[in-house]
Amino acid sequence: MSKVEFKAVGMKYHTLEGETEALKDLSFTIEDNQFVSLIGPSGCGKSTTLSLLAGLLSPTDGQVMIDSKEVDGINQRVAYMLQEDYLFPWRSILDNVLLGLEIRGELNDSSRKRARQLLADYGLGDFEDYYPTQLSGGMRQRVALARTLAIEPDILLLDEPFSALDYHTKLALEDEVAQILREEKKTVILVTHDIGEAIAMSDRVLVFSERPGEIKSDYKIDLTIDGEYSTFKAREATEFNRYFNSLWEELDIYV
């Protein structure tokens, strides 16, 4: 049974100026615990795909299924992490992490304890009572990750979560997040413009065509890594460059 299934999904946006066909006849499946990256030219409908999965939008054609059930409204099993952290400046770090639990009415001693443990695991245990403005960009994004994982989702949607960070922080955080998510055994869908990031982090890369988005190709990523996995080691794997070059060529046409 697939965790996620898109069946001939079409999505059209309507505005006063006209109609934009963002997705057309989009079909793919994602297995449980898979880490899949979506790459493709700008405006091809990657974010739209995530919004459909999160239940923020409904498709104008076809079906979006999670656990073989059609998505209907916000799904409690799905968590969405956006490009920026969008931490609330008026809430302390801990209160930011508790936001999702609070909204779902799941705030209790054990969930609070779990949230604090998440912060401690990400090296932010001492910052619980700080406010977001007092933290660096990388720390803030880790808080956003804790907020996302605090609601214990099965499926994680990440929309360019590292693109607002500086290069070093981005590399370090990529590795951290990849390790955490591998351990947690979640189904992850990552949208990114960074081919290297996609290869180093995922089990599979889906390449979108230009708008209206369809799957252009589907890469299974198999890297020979000796010892413990890390995105740094993944980048050193012999197959890395081969994947990079083919993906680069696939995208190159559109740049």
């Binding site: 999160a54 923020l56 920026e84 999702g100 609070e102 909204i103 779902r104």
Partner: peptide, 25 residues
């Protein structure tokens, strides 16, 4: 809008959106 979107993905209703973001911000 992105803060509102974030809350919606967490399953917030209109009243929660108002109380937790719109009013506070």
């Amino acid at each position: 809008n992105n803060k509102i979107k974030l809350l919606r993905t967490l399953g917030a209703n209109q009243f929660q959106i108002f109380k937790k973001v719109v009013l506070m911000e």
